[in-house]
Amino acid sequence: MRIVRRLCAWIFGILMVHLLAFLMMRTTRGGPFDSARALDPIVQRALEQRYGLDQPLLVQYGHALSGLIRGDFGPSLRYRDTQVSTLLADALPISLILGGGALLIALLIGIPAGLYCARRARSFDGKFLHAGGALLLALPNFVLAGLLLAIFSFQLGWLPPAGLGGVRNFLLPWLCLGLPLSAQILLLVRSKAKQALCSDSVRHATAEGLPPRIIVRRYVLRPSLGPVIAFLGPASAAILTGSLVIEKVFALPGLGTFFVQAALSRDYTLALGVTVVYTALLGLCTLLADLLMARMDPRLEAVS
């Protein structure tokens, strides 16, 4: 029942965001056919007629809404010979590969490093790792991209600097997106794990003589993962839909660039399409995170 309620809220959220995005795009000055080179007014009118932009706003919203329900956003106004659904279908896999890999790297580095940091909080290496995490978090990703490119592409010549090609082409983008995220996870895990290490359950388990490996796994890792999952819900939606900077630096044709490009070029249909995809993914990821957290900590379920 709770899930049904959440799904209804999710659909309602998508509709509201769709309406807001529609209104914001249409109230912004400039249209899709304005450019440095003026179009003949007759040509401009013909184009507006073809895309229904000459109709009242309410009628246009009706078309957009029925398109949303049918899953057809219509042709892009910038890529005039391509449907928005084709653009999204082409770009989404690239974004998923990019974001999925980055998430994987973030989890594989962030969680063990956070646990290590917490256990050795007072020693030099723990402090060093903690400071390194904070620094990584503060570093803008284009700076990180520049550094990694300089080292791995130009100094060592191991990895290609940009473009689609294979796993090697994705390694640097994964690191650029994943490392700051892993730093975030490190900090979250560290603070929770430090608390957990001082808890009664850990003291008892230690007194019982359980091996440290089991103690960490069972009584330290589990409570530490709560905030990570809560954070990863919305964060994974953002990272799976691409990153403007990383896509631009590494010339990857993912979804991220569309968010900015579609708005700047007043590509109404594409902008609505990417907004809906992002909202839907955000809702789903948050829902998944909530369900996972409720299973991990039944007290949450009781409260809700």
């Binding site: 056919f33 179009l39 007759i42 040509v43 009118r45 013909a46 184009l47 073809r50 005039r80």
Partner: peptide
Amino acid sequence: PATGADYA
């Protein structure tokens, strides 16, 4: 006009 060409 329906072609929408800059150089119509």
